[in-house]
Design a protein around this nucleic acid. Structure first.
Lengths: 244, 244
DNA sequence: GACTCAGATCTGTCATATCATAAAATGAGA
DNA sequence: TCTCATTTTATGATATGACAGATCTGAGTC
């Protein structure tokens, strides 16, 4: 956890700070974030913090209401579906380009990454997510289109917040789920690559939908009000909540 | 040109104001925008204006450097290519979904829109762009995925700024360019729909590349400095500039 | 217990002021 | 006319404070 060199701007420092806390799960879904407290914690005014939160809101990690507060976004089923449809579009495009233009080094590295991801999906949970993201990032980079990589990276950041929660999965995902995908990508046929990636992303959506199901109810219970106190915890208990 | 109801926030008012001026070409590419002047013009502080410009920067319409200024973004060839690759990904996805799930009304309306667009591509230049955008928006809406529609809409806003400039086109685009596309979309075969849309977007990219070629040189001449005075106009003359 | 309602507290929005830096304007020297 | 260093002006970044509105708290009521 190092300061990313010289942020050169308090706003970007605050941005990284809050983003990391969300991605690590220190801020839980639905939790209200206080600009002033974070500003005090970082020793700055709350204006650069506001700019940072605004940016995170654009990226879909936060949601806010004018004078009520800002909280970590709680997704609705439509959010998840929409997210995965956009993501499918982008990743299919990336995998087609990868199959067509990736270098030999790209393809070799991808094989190694896929093997690592598949291995960790069964054993090491905490390292699985970063490895999985790296795999997809490499595919995007192999497509040789920075704009596409950037768009994909943004969608991944959003989805990451959904995985910092309970992981009841261990659903028998095939042991070579990612290796099989990569095998097709490196083979070099864009159409087959697209097909494989499309299937891959769709599986991901089904998985996420299952995991997030309890939280959909929480979203409904919260409604439009931004609870600042612990009332939210009470709601969590009241809910039908098969949270685990 | 109506105020969109009650903006409820000065920042969003400034956002709409600046965005419209960019899209209408009142702000030309590379022109530096002064937060303070706009704030004065709108009778507000420059803080809400800053928030608006920040948002437009996220959307790719503006670019800024820390204490130099904020200007309407001048695209590089890589920008255009990246934009169209992302756009291709999204629109192909939309057209596949449209072919699969659009209602009968959707398909009927699309036919009419396509005919209108093709008609105006030859005659009415000023109405062509809005009609063209509406056509693509309807396709996205027919896909029944708000998130996808939103993503596409954002990419269109960016591209629109590129068309407020010289239109040397009138390149013999086939008279039924959009009608042919729509014919395939409404037929209902997702694979063929995807194919047709992919081809359509690629044509669009080639077109845009041709139009923007002169501006690529301007971008190089500008470099990283944000000219606030008229020196920029001199540069424009100096350039090889077959601007018209 | 549940419900209401007035104050206290916190929130985001916005205005104003200061500061370091980038670009412009100026002017002396070739 | 050109170049280069200087000053001047303009810009974005940030701090601070005021304000309206949302949420919270707690006493009072049933």
């Amino acid at each position: 956890m190092k300061e990313t060199a010289m942020p050169s701007s308090l706003a970007s420092e605050a941005y990284e700070f809050v983003k990391q806390r969300i991605l690590r799960g220190n801020f839980t879904m639905g939790q209200v974030i206080s600009r002033r407290k974070i500003a005090a914690e970082l020793g700055m005014s709350f204006l650069p913090v506001s700019e940072a939160l605004l940016r995170l809101e654009f990226e879909g990690l936060l949601e806010s209401r004018p004078r009520a507060g800002t909280r970590v976004r709680i997704p609705s089923p439509e959010d998840v579906r929409g997210h995965y449809i956009v993501r499918e579009a982008l990743e299919v495009q990336a995998s087609m380009l990868f199959a067509a233009v990736a270098t030999e080094e790209d393809r070799i590295e991808l094989h190694a990454l896929a093997a690592r991801v598949d291995a960790m999906s069964a054993t090491n949970q905490s390292l699985y997510l970063p490895a999985h993201e790296k795999l997809h990032r490499r595919i995007a980079e192999g497509a040789r289109c920075p704009a596409l990589s950037l768009a994909i990276e943004k969608t991944h950041a959003l989805a990451s917040t959904w995985f910092c929660v309970a992981r009841p999965h261990s659903d028998e995902s095939p042991p070579r789920r990612h290796s099989d995908l990569v095998d097709i990508l490196v083979a070099g046929d864009p159409v087959k690559a697209a097909e494989a990636m499309r299937e891959h992303v769709r599986r991901g959506m089904e998985n996420t939908m299952k995991r997030l199901k309890p939280y959909f109810q929480i979203r409904k219970a919260y409604g439009k009000t931004f609870f600042r106190s612990e009332k939210r915890d009470k709601l969590r208990i009241i809910l039908p909540s098969a949270l685990n």
